[in-house]
Design a protein around this nucleic acid. Structure first.
Lengths: 187, 187
DNA sequence: TTATAGATTGACTGATCACTCCATAAAATT
DNA sequence: AATTTTATGGAGTGATCAGTCAATCTATAA
């Protein structure tokens, strides 16, 4: 791992544990095994580091989710794969998932550029549009379906996070809750 | 409004806008129109203020939700009233709702005492238990139903927040989404 | 009236923090 | 080989901040 990645990894670990406030850049540098100055060589400011870490994680997640998409799958299968992969990635990458949410409720969110946002939501938006224009979903506004979907994933994630289940039980829950979600949203 | 409440109101406003990190206690005191020392007379530390504000808001919300509950209502009506009141309160108290979420993804969450948590979740838990023991809900773990429910509220809230709807349209969406939720969770 | 306790003030402080700066080293480019 | 660019280090700094403190004010009770 190069120094930039070491810094990102250290920042993630400390931000999740102590919050943005509670984490001085000096501690991040120390945890990463680099000098103070090195951190500011890669990230002009602390805020730059925070936003950079967010984009780094989001792109990583997005790359992973994209890999689950196969052209020839039905919409339902594509969405199920997206749903499943999201939850599984979140369970494997707990600090990353927590950080995303922590970031979403911070003033730093406003610093994410529109291009970054577009790139990070393209995949979801595309599937959603497919379902809306194909009249697969119930006749609700696209935004409402999107929000409901997001909320559902969030809720199920919280459950899976707080109950230690075997991989098999986990997959079972994911499958069942997807069906609930699908039945709720489609005609 | 007495000084303690002025401080809480100022803290809420500034925390939501600038985050915990970006809000010095001196600014809070200034915004509240009190001296620095006065703030620390009412709250021993900044963290005390943050946690105190959270409990203050949560108790406020809880008091409001409790008022919607009538003994003789059916479970469905009780839940619908809780659901509706939650969303409406959140829309009227946007900063408060945002602060709750901001707080949930901060290290300060760990400082809320078990008694406070119990008091703040009693109402929800009670209705949930009623539905589980009465076999109204589908046979899922209580925790899963609870999380799903929370996620659903969260999702619909995000939608209502981001779309400027008339009161009437809003109520319509709330009614419709509750039915979706109810159908999804009950037998 | 006096005594006591709480409320309020704002100047002050010790510690901490984000960030700078310059020296050196390594790598890339000419 | 010479030159430029990039990477790294770490001591240093000015600003800021959470929290203190002693003085004053207010109110209530004895």
């Amino acid at each position: 791992m190069n120094k930039e990645q070491e810094i990102l990894a250290a920042a993630l670990k400390l931000f999740v544990e102590f919050g943005f406030h509670g984490t001085p850049t000096s501690k991040i540098a120390k945890e990463a095994g680099v000098a103070n100055g090195t951190l500011f060589h890669y990230f002009k400011t602390k805020e730059d580091l925070i936003v950079g870490l967010y984009n780094h994680i989001k792109d990583d997640l997005n790359r992973h989710l994209s890999e689950t998409q196969k052209e020839k799958d039905s919409l339902k299968d594509k969405m199920k794969n997206l749903y499943t992969a999201s939850l599984q990635w979140g369970l494997v990458h707990k600090p990353e998932f927590y950080f995303i949410q922590q970031f979403h409720f911070s003033p730093h969110l406003a610093k994410v550029s529109p291009e970054d946002i577009e790139r990070q939501t393209r995949l979801h938006l595309q599937l959603l549009r497919e379902g809306v224009t194909g009249e697969i979903f119930k006749p609700f506004p696209e935004q409402l379906i999107s929000s409901t979907l997001g909320g559902h994933v969030y809720g199920v994630y919280q459950y899976l996070l707080n109950t230690e289940l075997t991989q098999q039980k986990q997959d079972e829950i994911i499958g069942q809750t997807f069906e609930l979600l699908w039945d709720m949203l489609t005609k």
